[in-house]
Design a protein around this nucleic acid. Structure first.
Ligand SMILES: Nc1nc2c(ncn2[C@H]2C[C@H](O)[C@@H](COP(=O)(O)OP(=O)(O)OP(=O)(O)O)O2)c(=O)[nH]1
Ligand SMILES: [Mn+2]
Ligand SMILES: [Mn+2]
Length: 518
DNA sequence: TCTTTGAGCCAC
DNA sequence: AAACGTGGCTCAAAGA
């Protein structure tokens, strides 16, 4: 932080040294007291086996950082800014829009709903309520004939305000005067302005995050050095910042900003259908296990969601299928994590009643799974605690009312699964580094991202390293009927990495041959 | 001139 | 529609 650095620069050097020394000393002394607490909470295993080695790995990653492709970065940034200039000129040409700040939701609402008098989901009636009823949204979007808009609505959530969820908090949902993309896709059926605004918003986000906005994160060495926050989540997942790398927009455009050091390659491994597999492990559900062993469940749910046949899947462009598969994850995970038919409906593009049928069809595919899911949720709330197989814990000391209880049930249901997949992956990351070094392969850690991990190795050794990573990741540290297959990609640029290894072994392709000799 | 909050959008 | 879960970042606007 610039202001902080400036302030620190003015502090007397001797005072600063004394302060830093005291900081270290007191931290060290605290370990004695805290070790007692950790022991009392039976968390020495989590600390010693996972958190401490992970901390060392994250520090190593932070120090070395990731190289930014400076030419590509500047070129992309310039492109985005030029496009924005053009779009802004168009937007300002609309009557009354000349002096608008397009980044201000407040000003946009006045323009869209008062000046242009555009009608939100549900029309005039919605102005009466504070939030738009889900049924109104479902009905409205079902009647819209705009493929791009339909695609958006099936791939994004409506959820907006957060508040103190469930108790004394702000109501969640879509306000009738909302200016979100979700709303703009509806408004663009009535006027040209919202459509152009959507494009502007997209570019504004890209540039502010990864174009001009990225500059503050690029050090003098031309690299970014993200920090890992190990205590940000209630599940043991990690968070990153400065810059955050857990929420980079998918696709090559942004990922190609990050490249391997010259002469090195990045190797990336991601668990397949990770949390579904772990739910199968915990529940020992036969049908789910069988489904995972024989098909891709995300694709299977995508077929249900979009009404696709086997032929459709076979003939569809690869990228389109990939997008539909991604969209289906929110349904596949949403249902066992407690999403209601009302919540599912807008994303499925159907009424609440029809959404019930989707939910039933989902569970009909997996006999016994619904019972397990509901019991699993209840037990966590009853115990006021959720525990993962790695003995990570989340407590729920207070349950305030029946609605809060439902929230706690969903959180307690999710924790042991999300947490275990994270720790499984984190351990695999740590062990991959160890195994590579044991094999004499130089390696730098790259990011750990929930159920995926990255390392950087010298290019000539890529194949050896891929095999080692695959072996470590699939050699899970617990007994299970389930396998945990991985997909491994490799390349010099983070956004251009062909799959080189998956559940069926080595993947041959022209792309691999061109990129990775040997 | 700061800091905090709200709206919005991105990911696994 | 009393809400699938877990997060971070930017900008505008309000608060100190
Ligand atoms: N509750 C919830 N969890 C999610 C959602 N999206 C992702 N996750 C969790 C569950 C996933 O298994 C995990 C890793 O995300 P991935 O994008 O890698 O998906 P997954 O591993 O399921 O499939 P894949 O890697 O594509 O075979 O993150 C979501 O929308 N809701
Ligand atoms: Mn995965
Ligand atoms: Mn993943």
């Amino acid at each position: 932080d610039k202001a902080f650095a400036k302030a620190i620069a003015q502090v007397d050097k001797y005072d600063l040294f004394m302060y830093n020394g005291a900081d270290v000393d007191y931290t060290y002394r605290l370990t004695r007291d805290l070790a007692e607490e950790v022991k009392a909470e039976d968390q020495l295993g989590v600390l010693g086996r996972i958190e401490m080695p992970a901390a060392r790995m994250f520090m190593e990653f932070h120090m070395h950082g990731m190289l930014i492709d400076g030419d590509y970065w500047r070129s992309m940034s310039a492109d985005w800014q030029q496009e924005m200039v053009d779009l802004e000129e168009e937007l300002r040409s609309y009557p009354g829009a000349r002096d608008l700040n397009f980044g201000s939701p407040k000003q946009l609402a006045v323009y869209l709903f008062d000046k242009l008098k555009l009608l939100p989901f549900g029309g005039k009636a919605s102005f009466k309520g504070k939030k738009i009823d889900e049924g109104v949204i479902s009905k409205a979007i079902a009647e819209v004939d705009d493929p791009e808009a339909r695609e958006y609505w099936t791939s994004k959530r409506t959820q907006m305000s957060e508040g103190l969820k469930g108790f004394g908090g702000v109501a969640k949902g879509l306000s009738p005067r909302s200016t979100t993309a979700y709303m703009l896709y509806f408004l663009r059926q009535q006027h040209d302005f919202p459509g152009t605004l959507l494009k502007w918003k997209h570019l504004q986000k890209r540039d502010s995050m990864y174009g001009s906005g990225m500059a503050k994160y690029v050090w003098k060495d031309g690299r970014v050095h993200p920090s890992y926050n190990m205590t940000a989540t209630r599940t043991g997942r990690k968070a990153t910042n400065d810059p955050a790398i857990h929420n980079l927009p998918r696709g090559d455009e942004i990922y190609n900003l990050f490249i391997a050091d010259p002469g090195w390659v990045i190797i990336h491994g991601d668990y397949s259908q990770a949390e579904m597999r772990f739910m199968a492990h915990l529940s020992k559900n036969k049908a789910l296990t069988h489904l995972l062993n024989t098909t891709d469940i995300h694709t299977r749910i995508a077929m249900e969601m979009f009404g696709l046949s086997e032929e459709d899947v076979a003939n569809m462009p690869k990228d389109e299928l990939k997008d539909k598969r991604i969209a289906s994850k929110m349904i596949t995970f949403g249902i066992p994590y407690g999403r209601s038919p009302a919540g599912l409906a807008p994303q499925l593009g159907v009424s609440k009643e029809e959404a019930v049928h989707y939910q039933d069809a989902y569970y009909a595919l997996l006999p016994g799974f619904r019972e397990w899911v509901e019991n699993h949720r209840r037990m966590g709330a009853d115990n006021h605690m959720a525990v993962s197989i790695f003995n990570r814990r989340r407590r729920f000391p207070l349950i305030l009312d029946k609605y809060h209880r439902r929230e706690v049930e969903r959180q307690a249901g999710n924790m042991p699964i999300q947490s275990a997949i994270n720790d499984l992956t984190l351990l695999a990351h740590i062990n991959t580094l160890i195994a590579l070094r044991d094999a004499g392969i130089p390696v730098f850690p790259w990011p750990h991202i929930h159920d995926s991990l990255n390392v950087m190795v010298p290019k000539p050794l890529w194949k050896l390293a891929v095999k080692i990573m695959a072996d470590v990741m699939t050699d899970i540290p617990f007994e299970s009927d389930l396998e945990f297959p991985v997909e491994i990609e490799c390349g010099e640029r983070w956004g251009a990495m062909p799959t080189v290894y998956d559940n069926d072994g080595w993947v041959e392709s022209e792309e691999v041959a061109a990129l990775l000799p040997g």
